[in-house]
Simulated assay, not measured.
Amino acid sequence: MIEAIDAIPLENIYRIDPSDRTPIPLYSSGVQAGFPSPAENHIERRLNLQDLCVPNIETSYFVKATGESMIGDYIFPGSILVVDSAVPVQTGSVIVAWVNGECCVKRFVRQGKQIMLESSNERYLPIYVHLQQDQFLVLGVVTYVVSKPPRYVRPR
Rank of each mutant, 00 (worst) to 15 (best):
G101Q: 06
W98E: 07
Q135I: 14
E118W: 11
V138D: 02
D20L: 15
V99L: 04
G30N: 13
D134Y: 11
P88N: 15
D6E: 14
A33R: 10
F62K: 02
V63W: 00
T143L: 07
A7K: 06
S28F: 10
D17C: 12
R45I: 11
L131F: 14
I115V: 10
V141I: 06
T66S: 09
K148C: 04
G78H: 05
I16W: 02
P9H: 07
V54N: 05
L117Q: 02
V99Y: 00
R156W: 07
G92E: 03
Y61D: 02
T66I: 03
A39L: 12
C53T: 10
S93G: 07
L125S: 15
V129W: 12
R154L: 09
L49R: 12
A7S: 11
K106P: 07
V83Y: 01
R45S: 14
V109E: 08
F35V: 13
G78S: 09
L26D: 08
V94G: 02
F136S: 01
S69I: 00
P150M: 09
P77G: 03
S120Y: 10
Q132S: 12
I13N: 00
P77Q: 04
A33S: 08
G67V: 01
L10W: 09
V99W: 00
Q32E: 15
K148F: 06
Y74G: 08
Y152T: 10
D134V: 05
D84E: 07
Y128E: 11
D51L: 08
S60Q: 05
Y61F: 15
D51A: 10
L117S: 01
I43T: 07
Q90N: 13
M70S: 02
L139N: 01
D17Q: 12
S79I: 00
A4M: 12
A65G: 04
V83D: 00
R21E: 13
S29C: 13
G101I: 05
S19W: 01
Y144Q: 14
Q114N: 11
L137Q: 15
I43H: 02
V82G: 03
I127P: 01
V87S: 03
D20A: 14
I71G: 04
M70K: 06
H130I: 07
R46M: 15
G30K: 12
V83H: 02
Y61A: 02
D73F: 02
W98G: 05
Y14G: 01
I127T: 01
E3D: 15
L47K: 06
K148A: 07
L81C: 04
Y74E: 14
I75A: 03
V109W: 09
A86V: 11
N56F: 08
L10E: 12
P155D: 06
P36F: 02
V63I: 13
T22W: 09
N41M: 10
P55L: 07
I43E: 05
R46S: 14
G67R: 06
V99Q: 00
L26M: 10
I2Y: 01
Q90E: 09
W98M: 10
N41R: 09
H42E: 05
P25K: 03
V94C: 06
T66M: 09
R123A: 15
M116Q: 08
F62L: 12
L81V: 12
S79H: 01
C53I: 08
S37W: 07
G72D: 08
N48M: 08
P55E: 06
D20N: 12
V82W: 03
G140V: 10
V105G: 00
E102Y: 11
L125F: 15
E11N: 09
G112S: 12
I43L: 09
P77N: 08
G92Q: 09
G140E: 05
P38Q: 07
G30S: 14
A97S: 06
